[in-house]
């Protein structure tokens, strides 16, 4: 059976500015993501990864081409698509405690007390934040702040999770822990994920598929199916011959462009 794609990206182009000052940031981007799949997009800095994610979120409009989610053209944001921002320290409300930051998404969804409190507690438990519930974001480590942002996104019960280099600024141990948690949660909840990174190994480790972008203008230069079964393991998977083969190929790809 051929599954209908959840996300369809069709010959999308994006430029900023107009007239002679216009600058193409993305050209001819096309891909599909099926329900529950984990797609990683990897590319050098400045190749338009964040721009692509903003387009998927509906925070920006495409200049050419079309993006459809669940068959509907994407023009504005929807709570169906949660976005995890690269800069977690700025994406949280500094004046709200951890629990109240998570509650923001529920307030947006119109969930009333006491239901809200119960859902917040459950989410905090899932993300291992129960003890930090009454702390403010500035009191937390980067990893904990990113957990809060993930909890807030899960609170809106999205069908699609868009993540922009979410673990780029974290130390290796914290990053690996969160990588495994996010893949486990996405699998459990059946959430479709588009995950952006500039780290090739992270892309292969996490993704069912990996798309490689090159810069100036941002375009797709390679797409692979990873084909390594889940659950994966930080040690064994990264030593798997298929993993290494992908790594070599994509590394060369990124070098050439």
């Amino acid at each position: 059976m051929i599954q209908a794609p959840v996300i369809e990206v069709r010959t999308v182009g994006m430029s900023f500015g107009n007239g002679t000052g216009a600058r193409a940031v993305l050209t001819d981007i096309s891909f599909d993501v099926v329900e529950g799949a984990f797609l990683c997009i990897v590319g050098p800095s400045g190749c338009g990864k964040t721009t692509l994610l903003r387009l998927l979120a509906g925070l920006l409009r495409t200049t050419t081409g079309v993006i459809r989610c669940h068959g509907e053209p994407v023009t504005v944001p929807s709570r169906d698509r949660a976005i995890i921002f690269q800069d977690y320290s700025k994406a949280l409300l500094p004046w709200r405690t951890v629990a109240n930051n998570v509650a923001l998404a529920l307030e947006a969804c119109g969930v009333e007390e006491p239901e809200r409190g119960a859902q917040v507690s459950a989410l905090l438990r899932t993300m291992g934040l129960t003890r930090a519930a009454d702390q403010y974001p500035s009191q937390l480590s980067g990893g904990m702040q990113q957990r809060v942002q993930i909890a807030r996104c899960l609170a809106q019960r999205p069908r699609i999770l868009l993540m922009d280099e979410p673990f780029g600024a974290l130390d290796a141990i914290t990053r690996q822990g969160l990588q495994d948690e996010v893949t486990r949660l996405a699998l459990e909840l059946g959430t479709t994920v588009v995950f952006i990174t500039h780290d090739l190994e992270e892309a292969i480790y996490l993704g069912d598929h990996v798309i490689v972008l090159a810069a100036n203008p941002g375009r797709i230069v390679e797409r692979i199916e990873v084909g390594i079964a889940r659950p994966r393991s930080q040690l064994a998977t990264r030593e798997d011959p298929r993993f290494l083969a992908h790594r070599h190929r994509l590394f060369d790809m990124l070098q050439d462009h």
Binding site: P77, A82, F85, D87, A91, L93, R96, L104, A105, Q156
Partner: peptide
């Protein structure tokens, strides 16, 4: 902060919620 504005948009906050929950406290 423009980042918080994007958070508000992605959560589809109403104008009133943006004013009350984001702009005023900030």
């Amino acid at each position: 902060d423009p980042q918080l504005a994007e958070v508000s948009s992605s959560l589809c906050l109403t104008r009133w919620q943006r004013l009350w929950k984001i702009a005023l406290p900030s």
